[in-house]
Amino acid sequence: MKTLDKPWVLIAEREITTKLRDKTFIGSTLVMLLIVMVAVILPAILAGKGGPDKIGVIDDAGLKVVQTASVTAGGDGYEATRFSDRPAAEKAVTDGKVKAALLPDADGYVVLGKDRVDSGVEGALREAAAAVGMETNAGKAGLTPAELHAGTKVSLQLLKPGPLPDIVSDFVNIGLALVFYMTALGFGMMIAQSVVQEKESRVVEILAAAVPIRSLLWGKVLGNTVLALTQIVVIAGASLIGLLATDQADILEVVAPVAGWFVVFFVLGFVALAGLWAVAGSLATRQEDLGSTTLPGQMILMIPFFFSVFAGSSAKTVASFVPIASSMSMPGRMLTEDVPVWQPLVAIALLLAATVLIVRMGARLYERTLLQTGRRLGYREALALESK
């Protein structure tokens, strides 16, 4: 009986149970889970599929060069395969048993390939051969390896280091923005469609007679926010399982500190948009009307999404403080840049203020338009009704 004093809770429960029985919703969630699992696991499988590249050698000197190249290459490196003589090494290359062969030549070595040699393999072997040769020659001249390489060390220093490499940074920015965009768009359209279905079937008139109209709105916003956040958590859990299963747990050290911030930005941005999507549904009288009534909501999502993905660094910094756009830009910046704590706090404060204003305006429009069933209303007409 407690929930009867809070009708918006009943509406929220109705939204959740209805969606959980919807085969389309369940199917789309499963598809998203599958895509995430493939995106997380497949790269690791492909990266480790062939193991280290095999390089054929016929003597100890070649073996040492390949071992040196393997250490400097990183990752799986290279694996030296010993053959008895040059013809045997050539046959292995021709048959594809080895990636290439490193054979002694008159003035050093020759890298032998079938029809081509990977530039990375050639470069690594060339550098390793030079390093091993210099150390051998230095020994003959009475120099130690340390003396030979004195004053040649080059180190790397970054003035504005980011927690992730450039390629990963771009992927993360696009990924986080895409998660918010797809979730807000998918659930937003479901909210609008749900409102129109209730209007077409006259169910909304029964609900409005028993429950305050604002409670109908709060219930829809709350129920869909819970569903959207739950879907994100499930997807995050699937990603976590995929990362742990493929020994990529080190990525979590970078992502985990920003996860809480992302949830805050996601919830505030989604709540603001959910109110607008509900209004888009209340302005329509048929499913066919949603194309025009939901267009503003789609533009509010689409423009910041493309801006956060393709804009330059200065523009992204500005976008990370703009409400709604900040839900897509700020979490990505926090993962890829050294962002002072005050910046996300200011962005959250601005987003919270905008969310309150948008929801309050949406609630007033929703009250004025929900029971208008004669024809589709425009936003200007709805604002005029609200002001009466």
Rank of each mutant, 00 (worst) to 15 (best):
D5H: 15
P7H: 07
E15I: 11
L20C: 08
T24C: 09
T24Y: 09
L33N: 00
I35A: 11
V38G: 08
G56M: 07
I58D: 00
D60G: 08
K64C: 00
G75Q: 09
G77R: 02
T81I: 15
A88L: 07
D95S: 15
V98E: 00
V98R: 01
D105P: 13
V117W: 05
V121K: 03
A130G: 06
E135N: 08
A138D: 00
A138P: 06
G139T: 03
E147A: 12
A150R: 14
V154A: 09
S155N: 13
K160V: 11
P163E: 06
V168G: 04
Y181N: 03
F187Y: 12
G188T: 03
V196E: 01
Q197T: 12
L217M: 15
L217K: 02
W218A: 12
K220A: 08
V233Y: 05
I235Q: 02
L244D: 00
T246I: 13
I251N: 04
W261N: 02
L268E: 01
L268Q: 01
V271M: 10
S282H: 03
A284R: 01
L290H: 01
L295P: 05
A319F: 10
M328K: 06
S329F: 10
M330Q: 06
D338N: 13
G362N: 02
G362M: 06
Y366D: 02
E367P: 14
E367A: 14
A382N: 02
A384Q: 12
S387G: 09
K388M: 14
